[in-house]
Amino acid sequence: MSALTLYGSVHDPISQSMMLLLQAKNIPHELVEVRTNKEAVRLQNGKVRAKTFLEAIRFLESDASLAAVHKRENTEKILTDFADNIEPLFYRSVLTGNPREGLDLFFESISYLENILDGSVGPFFGGKAPDVLDYGLYPWIEKVGPWLPKTERRECVKLQTWVRKMSRLPLVVKLMPDTDKETLDIYKRLVPDDTLLKFTPKS
């Protein structure tokens, strides 16, 4: 049995980010499928648990026995900002069926990511090849996309190119099913009740 165990689902964005990172870095692990919202998504080694992608990065980098996980200097800040601003939008909009909620905030953040990509030496946040930040952001953006109006071709050109390139990566094709109503419904059943309750608009 692998020392590392990922308890997750192919439909869950946090799980998907962890799966992509572990596979891309060739870090040995065992995958245990989470099937109900009573089971917590986490990366675990003995009693040490990482429940978010950021926690997983810190956990992997702190364990000298694991393959090194490269990250750019500002990766943690970007992922933290994303978790604070975009993940709540995702829960409020996509999972509660209210896609208009928070769209302005989403597009502001899209511009922020476009500016970051503009400073990259390649089409990915990691440069010429995807890296930690790409794996952390893509599963969320891929799921939000179908709920939003089509972006003008001249807007966020680099981000649109990034989404297309990420969607075609063999690793992404292998690990991530395309998002549609059915896959979102499956994911909704895995989200803890208190998380949904927190973001469901009050009538």
Rank of each mutant, 00 (worst) to 15 (best):
I57A: 00
N85L: 12
I57L: 15
P88Y: 00
S120Y: 04
E55A: 08
P88Q: 01
L89G: 03
E76T: 07
N115H: 13
I78W: 05
K51H: 10
D118E: 07
S111D: 15
A67P: 01
S111E: 12
L60P: 00
V69K: 03
E76I: 15
R58H: 12
T52P: 01
R72P: 03
K51N: 14
T75N: 15
R58W: 07
L117N: 11
G102E: 13
F106V: 08
S65E: 09
S120L: 11
S120I: 08
D81N: 08
E61G: 10
L79I: 03
L60V: 00
T80Q: 15
H70Q: 08
H70P: 05
L103W: 15
F90T: 02
L113A: 04
L60T: 01
E108R: 11
N98D: 10
L60I: 00
L95V: 04
G97P: 03
N98V: 14
T52N: 02
E108L: 11
S111W: 12
E108N: 09
R58T: 07
E108S: 13
I116M: 06
L54E: 06
R58M: 05
H70A: 05
P123G: 07
L95G: 01
S111F: 08
D118L: 15
G97I: 11
D81I: 10
K71C: 10
D81R: 14
S65G: 12
D104R: 12
T96A: 07
G119M: 03
S109E: 08
P99T: 07
D104G: 15
Y91D: 01
P99R: 09
P123T: 08
K77V: 11
F90G: 01
S109V: 04
L89W: 10
N74Q: 14
R92M: 13
L117G: 12
F53Y: 13
G97M: 07
V94H: 00
P99H: 12
F90P: 01
F124Y: 06
D104K: 09
L79G: 00
F90C: 02
P123D: 12
L89C: 15
L54N: 12
F107Q: 05
D63W: 01
F90W: 02
E61C: 13
R58Q: 12
L117Y: 06
K77H: 07
P99Q: 03
D118R: 15
E61K: 09
L103I: 07
L54I: 08
P123V: 11
S93L: 02
L103K: 15
H70G: 08
F90L: 05
I110N: 10
I57G: 02
Y112T: 04
D84N: 09
R92Y: 05
K51I: 15
V69F: 02
V94A: 10
F107W: 08
P88R: 02
V121R: 12
Y112L: 10
I110T: 10
P123Y: 05
L113T: 02
L105V: 10
D104M: 07
I57Y: 00
V69L: 07
E101N: 09
R92N: 05
R92L: 11
T75S: 08
K71R: 13
E114P: 02
F124S: 08
H70E: 09
T80E: 06
A83H: 10
F82C: 07
K77M: 15
V94E: 03
S111Y: 06
A67F: 04
L95F: 11
I110G: 06
E76W: 09
F82Y: 04
A64K: 05
I110C: 11
E55L: 07
P88S: 01
F82W: 13
